[in-house]
Design a protein around this nucleic acid. Structure first.
Lengths: 234, 234
DNA sequence: ATTCTAAATGAACGGCATTCATTTAGTGAA
DNA sequence: TTCACTAAATGAATGCCGTTCATTTAGAAT
């Protein structure tokens, strides 16, 4: 009788009595997966500890047996996504093409996950295995191209800085530079905004403003970095 | 008697009876100033609508007669800070030196105000007069250096992207690249992190890691942008 | 005068991350 | 086997946060 009652309750309301369940309901992997699904459905505003728990059919407080804070959840998601950054070009392409490919992939992944950028940029990579794997592949690509070990990290950080900022730019509204009623006070700026990209050069296909700026900046930085290290190095 | 009581109450508890006061207590300027003071004392975690109201000796709901939301407060602060970005070099220095000066100033201002970066990067500049003034000065600097009007905004956006990312980097902890127990799985990366900046080149004074990466990236991007526009242009 | 609007109070509201006491299930040592 | 310990769940409670709303009062406009 008691057993039947418990089973019935489980089926009907998915209610569960207190206490440790026979087999664990949660794990880092399950939490990560549920968080990603939640984000893809409702965005980051939908990622709350309560919603996450609900999607895992668990009480919110249960999550805290597996993560210390919501920041920990974000770190799990971040490291998972870092695995989607494409570093394969470093194995096949010359340095400049490989950097361009990696950077674009990196930007595209995190343009869809802006709230993670402070997490990546500010939190140590300790215990973020996919992130470390990514850095190892990039470092190897730089070293193989002849970069001095003491300069690699600075160069990667510079590129990452540009990538993070560009990820924000992808999400900027089209009218971000519309000065509105203040336009007369900034005539040259307003004119430049209107003229932006007219007669789009053939080389860089101008699919949209963010891509054009990213392409321009990336090309400049790669060329500039190559030149910094000596013209014959790369 | 009634009057005396009210005055006493005002002195002792700064309590105020309901209703519109004889002269306005709040304004955009006062709110901005109070927010900045609050931020400089307690950081952005201390910037709450309740704390802001308290520092202005006002009820929290009173703020909503002057701003639509907390985002509005952030926008006020952002525009105020944009006035601190130094664009004076565009009037005196050649293009590359002026860009370098502006970019460093820009980064330094917002490195101390990271939570504003999403606000700058994502919100239209409409009704942000200081921000528009800054863009006008920068645009003029580019045009005077011979830049084509249709390319100016893309170049500025590319530089800004790098600046925003670099502002994050300033706030990264020193051990951000410490792989911890996973170091053996990324030997070249770990080695490069250790070797970072050894024998710091004489040219770029290496005050710290973030400055070194910023200096390297900025130099590269400026050189690359100048080259993109044709070697003789600048 | 009367009406309208601006600007304040104070009491609520719902949502959020997090904590804690409690319960239950497995694990390892005596 | 028993007993202590630890892991993993519940559910109630906490405190903070941004925001809304009814209300009150003061000045401005008709």
């Amino acid at each position: 009788m008691g057993l039947a009652l418990a089973e019935t309750a489980e089926l009907h309301q998915s209610r569960r009595r207190a206490g440790r369940p026979p087999q664990a309901l949660l794990s880092s992997a399950r939490i990560t997966k549920a968080a990603l699904k939640l984000i893809s459905h409702d965005g980051y505003k939908g990622l709350t500890m309560a919603a996450l728990a609900r999607s895992l059919n668990v009480a919110p407080s249960a999550l805290y047996n597996h993560v210390r804070s919501k920041q920990d959840v974000l770190l799990l998601v971040e490291d998972h996504l870092m695995g989607r950054v494409n570093v394969s070009a470093f194995a096949t392409e010359p340095w400049d093409a490989a950097v361009a490919s990696w950077a674009r992939s990196y930007r595209d992944v995190f343009a869809a996950h802006l709230p993670l950028i402070p997490v990546i940029a500010l939190l140590p990579v300790t215990n973020a295995p996919a992130t470390i794997t990514m850095y190892e592949a990039v470092t190897n690509g730089f070293l193989r191209a002849g970069w001095a070990p003491e300069s690699v990290i600075d160069a990667v950080v510079a590129l990452e800085s540009f990538i993070y900022g560009s990820a924000y730019d992808v999400n900027a509204p089209a009218d971000i530079f519309d000065a509105g009623t203040l336009a007369p006070q900034a005539p040259h700026f307003s004119e430049a905004v209107e003229q932006r990209g007219v007669g789009a050069c053939a080389a860089a296909a101008r699919s949209n403003d963010a891509d054009a700026a990213f392409t321009l900046g990336l090309k400049a930085m790669i060329a500039g970095l190559a030149a910094t290290l000596g013209p014959g190095t790369v």
